[in-house]
Design a protein around this nucleic acid. Sequence first.
DNA 1: CTCACTTTGTGCACCGGTTCACAAAAGGAC
DNA 2: GTCCTTTTGTGAACCGGTGCACAAAGTGAG
Lengths: 235, 235
Amino acid sequence: MIRRLSQARERGIPEATVARLPLYLRALNGMAERGLATVSSEDLAVAAGVNSAKLRKDLSHLGSYGTRGVGYDVEYLIYQISRELGLTQDWAVAIVGVGNLGRALANYGGFVSRGFRVAALLDADPEVVGDHIAGLNVEHIDELEAVIRRRGVSIVVLATPALAAQQVADRVVAAGVTSILNFAPVVLSVPEGVDIRKVDLSIELQILAFHEQRKTDRMTGGPAMAEEWPEAVDL
Amino acid sequence: MIRRLSQARERGIPEATVARLPLYLRALNGMAERGLATVSSEDLAVAAGVNSAKLRKDLSHLGSYGTRGVGYDVEYLIYQISRELGLTQDWAVAIVGVGNLGRALANYGGFVSRGFRVAALLDADPEVVGDHIAGLNVEHIDELEAVIRRRGVSIVVLATPALAAQQVADRVVAAGVTSILNFAPVVLSVPEGVDIRKVDLSIELQILAFHEQRKTDRMTGGPAMAEEWPEAVDL
DNA sequence: CTCACTTTGTGCACCGGTTCACAAAAGGAC
DNA sequence: GTCCTTTTGTGAACCGGTGCACAAAGTGAG
């Protein structure tokens, strides 16, 4: 039985759905390892931590890959999601900035697992250039453009200090890269068509602190005094 | 002039706004360092990478802290946002899992800057327990509950392997912690009232790959063959 | 004081995403 | 075949968030 490309798949998957597909994929991989052949939307939704209606709607954007009364074929769904996400091809990733974080990322085996391959490590500090980390030689940032070109790097991870990030981003974009994962705590400005995703530890903590404060406020009956500017200030 | 708590501030700031406040705060701190006394919504919006109407609406949720025709007082706004986010108090953070990532987080000076203090490092591996990292002694995970209690830890960062994360989360929650920042690639299940934020490198890369694939597809004129299941599979 | 200018704060229309709830489809028992 | 059970796929209402566009409020010049 050959399934033709579903009519429902005329390019245009909601961003929110895209962000959840990796979650489903991870849950499905776990199930495949445990030998499950099929899974219902309800079970998969629980494993991925979402509502089952949402999961079904998400999957319906890829096509009609389920069987009513039965569920989804685990292996088949893994393949479809992987293909949709572009994980059936190999992505060469360069990590720029080999400080504590860059090192951690380079060694983090998990994220290289499927589809991604760390193809280069670069840094400006002559002290670390030449080091061997995770089986790779750390190269000098001067080689950035050449390395990107020669190794077909299409995704760059920025783990540089905040001050260097924009400058590196500019060079990376000029070299033709259009996908950047930024760990530096700055707002990067890039031309139209370049995708940036940002991971910011400090912001995540601040959001947690906000909610934590709310929770403790609630217990102690609203915020304490000092609602005003603590010192006299002319506005 | 003493400003009373604005009527607009009857507790209930949109989640989307909360997520942007740290961004504004960072931009404002930069401006304060450069000696700016006031800033317009337009300028601040550009610095934070958002639309100025959105910025004004966000700030209006905290109260009416601007002056029409002038803008916002930088220092005053910094104080108001800091207070709203709960950064005027000191938060003790424990990092569980001192692998590459945990080490990087412990040493990452930037995120400890304002309001946060790494109060403990814990790990299960006897090999790393006792190590000194970022001026702290790595303690054994058995001490988890005692450390949380004694040092008043209210936010826990999970940087453990995926398999250990849920187990640690359960203990942490049982010890009374209600804010967790999770770096492990698993969906944690926690009781109502516990806030979890998740940082997942692998998911971010997969989202980038999706868009990158779209971009290259567009250039080569749609996806190549092989839209079907590559091998004969019985569904 | 008046007028021109600047910039905030917000009403309103719009949009993407979520959730409910159910019809349609598939399978199995008999 | 018919009936009953299970589970998908989706129409429709709803909800939070965004952005336009403008009135209100403040500044400064003359």
